[in-house]
Structures are given as structure tokens and as C-alpha cells.
């Protein structure tokens, strides 16, 4: 019985999905980009992908995940291109042979947001490490992604710079949400906690409550995005032609302009800085 049902199910699945499979495997089919919640949720892809499609006819499907999960998705061969923001992980990804080459595309910056009342008194500071140290010293609530995303890793590096071991706090004031930027900001907003967020997500985030930007501009808050083609030598089904076309376009003057043109409320979110374009 178990075997019967299982094999029937498998049979149905294979038959019913065969057509989809054939389509998905064709060389001309849409390509998949594993990217971050910050880029997707800010609306960047919604703004630039139609331009790319108009130019090349290639459909791009974006899966928005944390940087860690996006790289893992690509490692398993489930994406053709990764577009993320954690240079160290990206370089390891390439070094391990999963990616062809890492290209820098653009940057934005992280900002420290917190309640208007600012219980830790960090407003006006310019040193992010000192500000975090003060939040820790006061035990003011801080909402962390806690999801191995690029933002989370950047945050952990900043805590290190502040000489605070957040692993030892036992959750009293340091709270890991284990979810994306938006949900983490929802938590911060609901509990009047501080949080580190990329500016893009913050600008498009609606449920701010009492939160506002308290600190920005420290050079260590610089947030570099990179794009990598998944290595076809490792995963032969990767749509290398489309993936490379996408990367080339992102790095081209046209793609760089498309990124610069994306604004929310008149404010530019991402700053193109591809070396290909600059040279």
C-alpha cells in the first residue's frame, strides 16, 4: 500500500510536471537570480529588470533570501547568478569553485535606527562601534537579524569592533529574530529596539512606529554588493549565457545608470560603482 501510493504519487508528479521540467531546462528559459531581501524588498529589481528584459529579452526570476541562504541556494545549483552583499562569503564562494568570478556592482550603506527617545543616547555620534558599545553598556534592546545574512554578518563585524560579545548576552537585550530585514524592523518597531538596517529597506519600510535613523555615515557602514555567475563547470545546467548577459548588463553604463535612477521619495538607494563602468 505504502509503496503503491508512493509510486503512484511519484508517477503523477513526474508526468504532471514533465512539461514544466522541459520548459525549465531549455537554454532559452528564464534565469534565476538568488539575491537578498534588501534588494528585492526595496523594489530595485522591479525597477531595473524590465529595462534588462527590454534590452535582451531575457526573463529574470529573483529569489529573495539572506546572503547566506542565497549563496547556499547557488551552491546547490538552484540559481544561475548570485547578487549579494557579503564580500568575504562571496570570495569564499568563488574560491571553492562554486562561482566563476565576483564583480562589484554597487553599494549602499547601513544605518543604525532606534526609537526617537534614544534611551542609549547614540544620536549625533559618528563612530558606529562606540555607539554599539553604548547600547550594550546601557542594555538597550537591540533587534538583530540573526539569520547569517549579509546584514547580519556586517552587524556582527561591527559588534566585534565595539568589543561586545553578543553571543554572551543571553538574549536579555540582544534579540535575534532569525528572519529577514523587514520582519526584524517590525520587531524593532514593536519593541522600540535599536537595529542595524540597510538604507534601501529602511526607505521603503512603512511600519516605522517610533523608529528613526540615529547614526549613519561611518565608513564601516559601507555595504558593497557583488554579483557572481554560478560556475557551469560545477553545475552544467546553469544558464551561463543569460547569466553572463545579466552580469555584463549590470556592469555596463546602461545597467549602472538604471541602478542610479532607482529612487524612493526622491532619494537614491544604491550607488553604482562597477570597475568595468568606471574604467
Amino acid at each position: 500500500m505504502v509503496g503503491k501510493v508512493a509510486s503512484l504519487f511519484l508517477f503523477l508528479a513526474v508526468v504532471a510536471l514533465g512539461a514544466a521540467a522541459a520548459q525549465a531546462q531549455s537554454a532559452t528559459g528564464p534565469m534565476t537570480v538568488a539575491s537578498t531581501t534588501s534588494t528585492e524588498q526595496s523594489g530595485l529589481f522591479g525597477a531595473i529588470l524590465p529595462r534588462f528584459r527590454a534590452r535582451t529579452g531575457i526573463e529574470v526570476r529573483v529569489i529573495a533570501q539572506g546572503t547566506g541562504q542565497a549563496l547556499e541556494t547557488a551552491r546547490r545549483g538552484d540559481a544561475d547568478v548570485v547578487f549579494v552583499h557579503d564580500p568575504a562569503s562571496e570570495e569564499r564562494f568563488v574560491a571553492e569553485g562554486f562561482g566563476v568570478r565576483r564583480h562589484e556592482v554597487m553599494y549602499n550603506d547601513f544605518v543604525l535606527v532606534g526609537p526617537k527617545a534614544d534611551p542609549a543616547g547614540v544620536r549625533g555620534m559618528t563612530d558606529i562601534a562606540a555607539a554599539l558599545a553604548r547600547i550594550a553598556a546601557r542594555g538597550a534592546p537591540f533587534a538583530s537579524r540573526g539569520d547569517e545574512s549579509g546584514t547580519h554578518k556586517a552587524e556582527l563585524r561591527l559588534w566585534q569592533a565595539a568589543v561586545v560579545d553578543v553571543r554572551q548576552t543571553g538574549g536579555a537585550w540582544y534579540r535575534e529574530t532569525g528572519s529577514g530585514m523587514g520582519p526584524t524592523l517590525n520587531v524593532a518597531s514593536a519593541t522600540n529596539a535599536y537595529a542595524l538596517t540597510d538604507r534601501g529597506t529602511w526607505l521603503s519600510f512603512r511600519n516605522r512606529g517610533e523608529l528613526e535613523i540615529l547614526l549613519a555615515g561611518d565608513r564601516r557602514l559601507f555595504n558593497q554588493y557583488g554579483v557572481i555567475l554560478v560556475n557551469p563547470a560545477r553545475h552544467p545546467h546553469v544558464r551561463a549565457r543569460q547569466g553572463q548577459a545579466f552580469i555584463d548588463w549590470l556592469l555596463s553604463p546602461e545597467g549602472q545608470k538604471a541602478i542610479a535612477d532607482f529612487r524612493i521619495g526622491g532619494e537614491q538607494l544604491f550607488f553604482p560603482n562597477s570597475k568595468a563602468s568606471a574604467s
Partner: peptide
């Protein structure tokens, strides 16, 4: 369904068919 999984060659991950399954 992942490419690294047993049914990976079908290329069904991130498709409506995968959701149906």
C-alpha cells in the same frame, strides 16, 4: 527538487509545480 537532490535534473525547484507538490 534541488539540483543537488535526487529529482534535481527535473529543474522543478522555484516553479509552481514544486509548490503543487
Amino acid at each position: 527538487l534541488s539540483r543537488a537532490g535526487p529529482l534535481g535534473p527535473l529543474g522543478l525547484l522555484f516553479t509552481p509545480s514544486a509548490m503543487v507538490m
